[in-house]
Design a protein around this nucleic acid. Structure first.
Length: 364
DNA sequence: CGTCTTTGACCTGCGC
DNA sequence: GCGCAGGTCAAAGACG
């Protein structure tokens, strides 16, 4: 985000009295003197007027924020287009220098893993957390093959090689609910259990704890519209948080895999790496599916898989951020993020109370 | 009882 | 060749 652009937006000044809820210096303290007997009759009218004025002001602010959001989305799309162009140019140059290096090495000694990861295309998608922290996926385009090591430091050459060979790799950064930090920090049950000597584990209780963790973990990261089955978990070298491996359980033939791991830098951020491409449509939403989804999965599994062209509405949705639905969704997510922030609430209350106190003496 | 998760063991690729 | 690290398998147990 361009800071100068932000600073240039005079409409951004919301007049929030952050951290200073008191009346301005020199202003008379607001006391109960305002409430007199003869004042009570007109007070309600004043209150109504004040509330109406406040309502108008909030509506105006709402309009300004909407304009801001539109400008922000436009700016974001513009930047995204520029990034895509730059990456396309870089990839084109890369392909020009070494055209046929990605497929050459896998010919000899076909391994078990290679046999599973032989998907056709080589598109790469990358997503980055927006400033607010919610997930944003950035489509790079189908013509941009090769690995993502340019954009992300890849300390594992194996991973880099896999990504280079990977059919379709996308990363999704999801800002987790901060209230879940207690479960997923260093002491979260799954990891604690895993680190304890096996003999010292109370299997029943630990299983339950790990299952509880897994449910919350899955609910957070698996809510991407698809159904995933966890088939492994590993503590990697560069990140104390374990990495979970998921496979698409919606269709047996679907080879899409997903790796989910908390970011080492910010553990409230879940990094989901998708490999492959679903050969089926997104399963219908299941409301209130707490816990296991086996029955639902089995039920949905029976339905025939629609053609490939109907897929991936999710990955592309953010790229078409100009649509009204996406803007609305974005605004809702921003609002949710803001309302969860106690600091924002305090600032808002402070601003509103300050404004009300400011208006009250002038009306009398 | 069927399905799912957990997790130790194993496999594979890569660097030295 | 050996060790390391990431990825996967599959048996065991949990859960609805």
């Amino acid at each position: 985000m361009d800071e100068q652009w932000m600073m240039g937006q005079t409409s951004l000044s919301l007049g929030l009295n952050v951290g200073r809820p008191t009346a301005p210096r020199g202003a008379p303290p607001v006391t109960k003197v305002l409430v007199e007997e003869d004042f009570m009759s007109s007070k309600k009218n004043h209150e109504v007027e004040a509330l109406e004025a406040e309502l108008r002001r909030v509506g105006e602010e709402n309009r300004r924020l909407s304009d801001m959001l539109r400008a922000l989305v436009a700016k974001y799309c513009d930047l995204q287009g520029r990034v895509s162009g730059m990456m396309a140019a870089a990839v084109a140059a890369n392909n020009h220098q070494s055209p046929t290096t990605s497929e050459g090495g896998s010919a000899a000694s076909p391994s078990r893993k290679r046999a599973r990861s032989d998907s056709p295309d080589t598109a790469v998608q990358e997503a980055r957390p927006a400033s607010g922290g919610f997930a944003v996926s950035v489509n790079v385009g189908p013509d941009q093959a090769e690995c993502t090591s340019v954009h992300e430091p890849c300390n594992s050459k194996r991973v880099r090689a896999d990504e280079c060979k990977a059919s379709r790799v996308s990363k999704l950064y999801v800002h987790a609910d901060p209230s879940d930090l207690s479960l997923v920090s260093n002491e979260h049950p799954a990891q604690s259990v895993h680190l304890l000597p096996r003999d010292h584990r109370s299997k029943v209780s630990c299983r339950r704890l790990t299952n509880q963790f897994a449910l919350r973990f899955d609910e957070q990261v698996v809510k991407d519209g698809y159904q995933w089955r966890k088939y492994g978990q590993k503590v990697t070298k560069d990140n104390p948080c374990p990495r979970a491996y998921f496979r698409c359980s919606f269709a047996p033939s679907c080879q899409v895999k997903k790796k989910v791991q908390r970011s080492a830098e910010d553990r409230t951020v879940l990094v989901a790496t998708y490999e492959g491409e679903h050969n089926h449509a997104q399963p219908p939403k299941m409301q209130g599916s707490g816990g296991r989804k086996s029955a639902d999965a089995a039920a949905v599994r029976a339905s025939p898989a629609p053609p490939l062209a109907q897929q991936q509405p999710k990955q592309q949705s953010m790229t078409e951020a100009g649509s009204a639905a996406d803007r609305k969704n974005l605004a809702e997510q921003m609002a949710a993020t803001l309302t969860r922030d106690p600091g924002f609430k305090a600032a808002l209350v402070s601003a509103l109370s300050g404004r009300i106190l400011e208006l009250s003496p002038s009306d009398s």
